[in-house]
Each structure stands twice: as structure tokens, then as C-alpha cells.
């Protein structure tokens, strides 16, 4: 299966017509009745929108400046008879809310619970990008790491042991050069295997050794679970409360934490308006 997919990618490598793998159909903005929701997250300028365009066939937004993808970019594609809705999130360095962009990205991954989050990292600046990777793995189990700009990394004589990285992070790691259409088929296969459970992800999480902190986190998580129905990740929310994250404190105080969880119907313009109104 894996070998067959790789073959397809090679055969189809130079294809520029309408597909980049035998099983991919680009559906543009036609995102009705999808089987899976996929989010694209990552640092600014790592090629999220390039991947987005490659997968959906859209060319709506390309540009090399910060804050280009502010609120909404949704598209769709079909892969192996399943329909995927793809959401391009704003590029951020962190999920710990120092800007509206970060809050949008965080709210989506945390509350709208995409079936898979593709974390796009710049292979030439991996160390710096891994910070956000670990933050995202704190809030979701279902992720794939796309090591983009691998062509540029190769040109700089950088080699990355993606298998070791995958073992260390507990998620699939796929090297790709999105602008050359290289690795897109492998990325889709990895996304599919996380979406359908074929790849059992075991995301690396930070363990705290401080007993007082752990018991405070447990205590708060329990209270959160009692107060709010179905909090997506009570432990993560508890840690933010202890840290003093103002947006989370406010959401808990005003009991709006649950209302953010709009599941698969996440309304970007509405959320942006909410955040800007504050």
C-alpha cells in the first residue's frame, strides 16, 4: 500500500493539470458534505497556503507577508473516495494568545476539533518550528507534521531523519516541497491514515514532575469538567488558567468556553468579530 502510493507520487510528479495523485480530485471551494475536516496550522511563511492551493486547486491567496491568512480560507478535495474539508489557519508562532491570529488558530484546533491537523514546518528552521509543533500536540491527538521546503533544506545540505522525528513526536512526518508538488501524495496518505485510525498517533506531551502542580491541574480539570459539558481538553485549559491566560480566564468566568466549541461549523468571521469587539 505504502509502496503503491509512493509510486503514484513519482509517476505523477510532473503533473500540473488538475491532479497531483491518481486519487486526488481538487474541489475548490465546494466544501459541502465532507467526511473529514482538516486544519492547516504552522508558523508564518512555512507554505501553508501553498499546500492549501495544491490540495484544493484554489489560487485565491498567495503572498509572502505576515498576516495574509487572517480569518478564513476553506476549500475541499476528494481523496480515495472520501471528501475532505480543508481549513487554512493564520500562521502563528504560538497558541498562547498574544494576538487575534493565535486565538483563531488555537480556538479552531481546540474547539472545532478537526479530524486531522496538518502542522506545516519549515524544514530549514526546524528547531524554531518545533515549539509550535509541541504546543499543537498538547491540544490534539490527531496531527501530521509536514516538513515543507525540504528542497531548500537539501540545497543547504540539511538532512532530516524523518523516521526518528516521527517516533519522537508520535505522529507521521512527511517531507515535502509543496511548490514543486513533491510529497503531496505522501502527505495525503498520512492524513488519511490518521483520519481513519490506521496510524495510531501517540503525541509527545510534556510531563510535569511537580506534584503540587499536577494536583492543582487535576483539581481544576475536574471542576472544569463538572462546570462545562464536554470540555475538549480540560487539562490544557487548566494549565492556561494556572498560567494566567486572560482570554481563557475570561471564557471560563463568562461561561463561554463551551460556546466556542461549535464543532465542524466553526464560523471564522463571527469569531473574528467577537475577538475584535473586545
Amino acid at each position: 500500500m505504502q509502496a503503491a502510493e509512493t509510486m503514484t507520487a513519482k509517476e505523477c510528479g510532473g503533473c500540473t493539470t488538475g491532479c497531483n495523485s491518481a486519487h486526488l480530485t481538487k474541489l475548490g471551494i465546494n466544501a459541502d458534505k465532507f467526511d473529514f475536516v482538516i486544519a492547516l496550522a504552522g508558523n508564518p511563511n512555512t507554505g501553508k497556503s501553498t499546500i492549501f492551493n495544491q490540495l484544493t486547486g484554489l489560487r485565491q491567496h498567495v503572498g509572502n507577508w505576515a498576516g495574509k491568512t487572517v480569518a478564513r480560507a476553506e476549500g475541499a478535495f476528494d481523496f480515495n473516495d472520501k471528501k475532505y474539508k480543508l481549513v487554512d489557519l493564520p500562521g502563528t508562532y504560538s497558541l498562547l494568545s498574544t494576538s487575534v491570529d493565535e486565538e483563531i488558530a488555537r480556538d479552531f484546533v481546540l474547539f472545532a476539533k478537526p479530524d486531522v491537523t496538518i502542522i506545516v514546518a519549515d524544514a530549514t528552521r526546524l528547531e524554531r518550528n518545533l515549539h509550535l509543533v509541541l504546543q499543537i500536540l498538547e491540544i490534539t491527538d490527531h496531527a501530521v507534521l509536514a516538513l515543507n521546503l525540504i528542497d531548500e533544506a537539501r540545497r543547504n545540505n540539511l538532512t532530516i531523519d524523518e523516521r526518528a522525528l516521527s517516533r519522537a513526536l508520535g505522529i507521521p512526518v512527511v517531507p515535502l516541497a509543496a511548490r514543486r508538488n513533491e510529497g503531496i501524495a505522501e502527505l495525503l496518505t498520512a492524513v488519511e491514515s490518521v483520519a481513519n485510525g490506521g496510524f495510531p498517533t501517540r503525541p509527545r506531551r510534556i510531563k510535569y514532575t511537580d506534584a503540587a502542580l499536577e494536583s492543582a491541574v487535576d483539581n481544576l480539570s475536574r471542576q472544569l469538567n463538572e462546570t462545562f459539558e464536554d470540555v475538549p481538553n480540560a487539562r490544557w485549559v487548566a494549565l492556561r488558567l494556572i498560567e494566567g491566560d486572560e482570554s481563557i480566564i475570561k471564557a471560563v468566568r463568562e461561561k463561554t468556553l463551551g460556546t466556542l466549541r461549535i464543532s465542524k461549523q466553526f464560523d471564522f468571521p463571527q469569531r473574528l468579530a467577537q475577538l475584535e469587539a473586545r
Binding site: Y93, S94, L96, T98, E127, R128, H131
Partner: peptide, 11 residues
């Protein structure tokens, strides 16, 4: 605060 957080996020 946020300023410190930002610097840490930038590595």
C-alpha cells in the same frame, strides 16, 4: 507577561 511570552515563542 505577553512581551516575555512572545520572546520565548520566538525561541
Amino acid at each position: 507577561n505577553a512581551e516575555r511570552r512572545r520572546l520565548l515563542d520566538l525561541g
